[in-house]
Design a protein around this nucleic acid. Sequence first.
RNA 1: GCCUCGGUGGCUUAGGGGUUAUAGCGUAUGCUUCGUAAGCAUAAUGUCGUGGGUUCGAUUCCCACCCGGGGCUCCA
Length: 630
Amino acid sequence: MRMLQIHSDGFSYEAKRKALKNAEAVKEKVYKTEDSCLVNFIAAETTDANDVSAAAKATAEMIASAADEIKEKNIVVYPWVHLTESPSKPSVALKLLKAIAKDLKERGFNVVRVPFGWYKSFELHCKGHPLAERSKVLDISKEIAKGADVDVTEGEDLTALAAEEKSTSEFFIMEPGGKVTDIKEFNYAKYKELKLYMEYETAKDRTAHEPPAHIELMKKLELVDYEPGSDAGNFRWPPRGLTLKKAIEERVTAEMVDYGAHVIQTPLIYDYEHPSLKAYLQRFPSRQYVVRSGEKDYFARFSACFGQFLLISQAQVSYKQLPLKLFEIAPSYRREQSGELAGIRRGRAFTMPDIHEIVVDEEGAKAAVLRQLEFVEKLHGELEVSYEVSFRLLRSFYEENKDFLTKVIDRIGKPVMIEVFDERYAYFIFKGEWNVVDDQKKAGCLGTIQIDVENSERFDIKYVAEDGKERFPLILHTSPSGSIERILYGVLEHAHKQMKIGKVPHLPLWMTPIQVRFAPVDDSFVDYCLELGKVLDAAGVRYEIDDRSQTVGKKVRSAEKLWIPYIAVIGEREQTSSELSIRRRELKDQVKMSIDELVKEIKEKTSFAPTQRLLLPNLVSKQAIFSREV
RNA sequence: GCCUCGGUGGCUUAGGGGUUAUAGCGUAUGCUUCGUAAGCAUAAUGUCGUGGGUUCGAUUCCCACCCGGGGCUCCA
């Protein structure tokens, strides 16, 4: 929408002849007033078609505030297409103008709407004061992206926010066996981290004075870094970090394949106008990245739900295939508020392993939760971090399923926090969360299992039942591990906590980019290192050779600063004896072993993880320095 | 989005309305060929976040914007 506003002493027009076949019918072709008025020449643009009523409301608001500033009660709404180079269709323009006029009348202004689709003559007399001539531009698609203050039109459902506000919750701790204790009464002596997690969840003051510890670590270890050329909260992954990221992705994918998932890939951007997506989006305040393509706006997905739901809604699904699982490593985007961003704990771009499991009914869903618990617990264990579990349940579901919940908590094997809420503010009736607590006592949610009771209908996802009829299933939304970024955050924060209590920080061996570093004592042993490297290549062990011409002390220091778990100094002794001298980080020792024994030890400790190649040259002298120190 | 603190070579950082803006790490070159956390010497590298303003003069003061930290709100 583009608008030219003139504060005028008097105004008149005369409709001469029709410019459009379907021009408005006009009773009075002539209008004239001597009263002062605010004349608004308005052109509707293509973008306004995205949401005419929102554009109308925003425009009316602009006019009303301008009128208030100049204390004017008389408003003229004048269609004037020539203000824009990308006019909307006439029908959109007419709808917009009518809606603007209606809105302004409701605000108590005297409104004259000049007929649409005519060639007209007009006269006005600009008052010439500083506010008498103004122009305004509105791009409603941008306003849609901003979300908050956009009008809600017919049939839309924005009840989520309101429901969340008035929803009341009860918090308690449930132990294996089913014992329930109020969160304030519970004895946390043996459960320090659970206490921290509970305090975080229920705290009013979340003040932290230091930057999160993982931010410095992620740069120093050259794993991941901010990209200043992108939007805030978008990261770049140099090769060490990318190796780790892919190792985690492949690990989770392998687990999901074992679980029986259909592994897929779906688009990054989606059409705002798609009926199912529209209904889904309107349930929530919008936090999307908007992507403009030609005349249309798309949004970057904020989870894998859309693509997976659209794919499965058009697939043939029989009860025989249930429970049916779709899995995707889904790069996703959420335009979080700037103040919410915190390193890789919370960014605007993240990589979410996301599985949706389609089940027949609530019984099927509960059975699926018990199955999914297994891999969620297993994967979190492999991250070598401590975590706290919580469940959030709708009261009715909680009341009817206490036995089920007890079974779940028995499986978890330690006390968990329970929140029971009275009003369903989102699509789920059950949500499990696996959380890490960082050094700032803030919690970050990794894995999650949710039972979704409303999206099969919204996305028209059906299966054919035994009786040949189509039925809506329930859907479990699950992230087996949480986003890769969040995992790394958890791992690094855990390492930092270890450091603080005097332990050696480390990355889990299976994900660490470099498992072995060779430090030849001088140039002449580089060739022997290359030979040893071939053995590691064959075994799928990631290594590098520090072939820079430096002292051994300095090479060891460099490897230690990168937290490399196995450092092998290679010199005359090693070459002649074929025994390696290995410095093991975690055990803080130095042992003799053959290359085969080294391979065996590493392979045994990482047997559960798929082989991931190192994604940069093995020779350190050939590696660019991205953000590491030495 | 709002409040608040910050941004000085690749990184960490000193400084401050006025001559040529520090230092360490890293990098380059030369020497050193070294045995488990820093070998020696020399050199290069700065539009002091960006844009505008005040001033004889701005990296320093003011404004706007961008980026980062913290907080509020938020976290489908």
